[in-house]
Simulated scan of single mutants.
Amino acid sequence: MTTIFARIKNTVLADINEVLDKKEKKNPIAMLNQYLRESEQETEKVRKLLERQYKLKEEFHREYVQAQELAEKRKRQAEIASQAGETELHEFALAEFGQYEERSQRLLSMLVEAEKQLAELERKYEEMKLKLKDMQIRRMELMGRENVTRAHTQMGKVLHNEEYSDRSFSKFQEIESYIERLEEQVQNSYFRSNIDAKVAKLEKTLKKDDTLSNS
């Protein structure tokens, strides 16, 4: 039965890996973004653990200080009871002093361990943040390379694909022809709107020349 389940598990994992491989080949940047999101989530988890560890350390420290204060208090009370000859009170205060002293030592040990764990978590968190930032920068680099590759591919289509080139070139020709038609229309409109004034000016000049020549 275990072997069957193991085979089913391996088959499912193989199918999942195959799907992921296909997705990665189809869109590697998308897969990289997914990996980065997962890394960001893991980094956030460590940050939350770090916050909890800070709170634990503070709590251990608070409990340790309180245990120390109670131990010192019971110690003084035991001494006073002893001096006053209050044997029963002396023994009670002394017993509690021992309990508080033992508790404070245990809390001190836990506090030291919590500080070590906190330092380790801080180190790992900083390391994860640096790695995450490095991966984000590398993603930007890869995206830049991908953009350049796509641009080269597109330019290659334009420059080397005859059908694509002819279609693109004909588009340019179409635009040039349209501009030429516009220029012709504008020029004709200009001459049409100014022809009367120009002819009148020419006629006036010719009459003036005739008058001068006859005189």
Rank of each mutant, 00 (worst) to 15 (best):
Y178G: 03
L36C: 02
A95E: 13
R145C: 07
D134R: 10
N147E: 12
L50W: 00
Q53S: 15
A84V: 07
Q154E: 14
A67I: 04
T153E: 07
L159G: 12
L56M: 15
E141S: 12
R76T: 07
V46W: 06
E113A: 11
A81L: 01
F97W: 12
V158P: 00
S170E: 14
A84I: 04
L159R: 15
L159T: 13
E146L: 12
L107S: 06
Y178W: 07
E58D: 15
M155C: 05
E51Y: 06
F60W: 14
A114M: 11
E44P: 00
Q117G: 14
M143P: 02
L70M: 12
H90D: 09
Q154W: 08
K73E: 10
A114Q: 12
K131P: 02
L50M: 03
R62I: 14
K129N: 03
L89D: 08
E40F: 00
F97I: 05
A151K: 05
H90W: 07
E126V: 02
L142H: 04
L94Q: 14
R74K: 13
G144H: 02
A93S: 09
D134L: 09
E86I: 04
E69F: 04
Y100E: 06
I80Y: 10
Y164T: 09
V148H: 08
E127Q: 05
K171E: 13
E126Y: 05
M155P: 01
Y100N: 05
L142I: 08
H152A: 09
E113L: 12
K55E: 15
I175T: 11
K133T: 07
K57L: 13
T153M: 01
R138I: 08
H61K: 11
V65T: 08
M155T: 03
E183A: 02
L132W: 00
A78F: 01
Q53I: 11
L56E: 15
